[in-house]
Design a protein around this nucleic acid. Sequence first.
DNA 1: GTCTATAATTCGATAGAC
DNA 2: GTCTATCGAATTATAGAC
Lengths: 206, 206
Amino acid sequence: MGSAAVTKQRILDAAERAFGTYGFAQTTLRSVVKDAGVNLALINYHFGSKEELYQAVVARMAKPIIEAQLAALNKIEPVAGKPPLEAVLDAYIRPGINHLLHDKKLALERAQFFARYFMEPIPVQKLTDREFEECDAPFLDMLQRAIPEQSRIQLAWKLDAIVLVLVRAMGQIGQPHALIKSYSKADIDAAVAELVAFSTYGIKGE
Amino acid sequence: MGSAAVTKQRILDAAERAFGTYGFAQTTLRSVVKDAGVNLALINYHFGSKEELYQAVVARMAKPIIEAQLAALNKIEPVAGKPPLEAVLDAYIRPGINHLLHDKKLALERAQFFARYFMEPIPVQKLTDREFEECDAPFLDMLQRAIPEQSRIQLAWKLDAIVLVLVRAMGQIGQPHALIKSYSKADIDAAVAELVAFSTYGIKGE
DNA sequence: GTCTATAATTCGATAGAC
DNA sequence: GTCTATCGAATTATAGAC
């Protein structure tokens, strides 16, 4: 890999940490280049602007998660003509956690960025509106087949709520009362099971 | 009320709107005074700094909500020696929503501020760490009496998740797929019922 | 208490040398 | 591609008149 590619990656890594910790508005490009060990002007050279840097960080993170989620969704086997609710939620929750936490050295910063990403003010959210959009529709379709008696609006806010809880759980790893106790595979699997159960019964409502 | 008190209130109202819409970092004091119709220098005269203004807004909002939640908690009647889970969650969820949405003219901005408040980066959260702290312990105590078979850590992350979902619901009022469709009492009551059900079954996990 | 005017920083972005 | 140096804009905070 050429030194330019290395520079871009160092900037993206440092930006991920900064945006995840301080949010978009409170992140300064000067702190990013200091952390990355590169020159200030290189951000604008490689990415154009602060907003485009943010979009690049989001895009790099979203791509593998969406691919994993859709792959899991397509593997669901219907039971009695319906996809099992628990399987749909598992396909939604597990790939994101697994991918984000796979590399233990990067897990915390990825989780924190992901948590912060969903909590930006609307003007910042508009910068990356369409990144995860392609994933919501197919999951909502499958949810409606799993629970036809609930409206799409009900399922939509519940799915949104699950993303929130999921993101919250990842952002709090290591803190005293966190759901995910450590980055070990056992703790992660246990947490996923709890999240899927919480979501399944919460959504089913019975 | 003297004109100084009017000025302070106008600043607090405008700050609530701005902080709720743009977050702490992206809110400029210039936009606040423009919205409030007062002079820029009066913010520092009355509140000292941007951070202290933010703390004042949070304190004004938190006080009545906490009082209402604790009052509702104390009214719970045990059934067979245990407080009913649904009653505990109702006492947690309903007072906040009712107080925030009571005044229809202020409901949207209050809800949005409340949603944004929970989603600020850690440096901003530190400014107001202790505001809602006194409310968590008594509710966790009551939850443990309601479901003794679950650990305090399990109940803690689930209660935290419910706050998140609640806050999310309030912050999205009026948007297309929102849980709370309007500020009418009927829509609010319906949403509270759905949230309580979602939380009850999600927490119970069966 | 309220205003005008401005000080003192800080930030994103860029020009131009290498 | 990478660097230094700096511009121009925007911000918080404040000094001083009224």
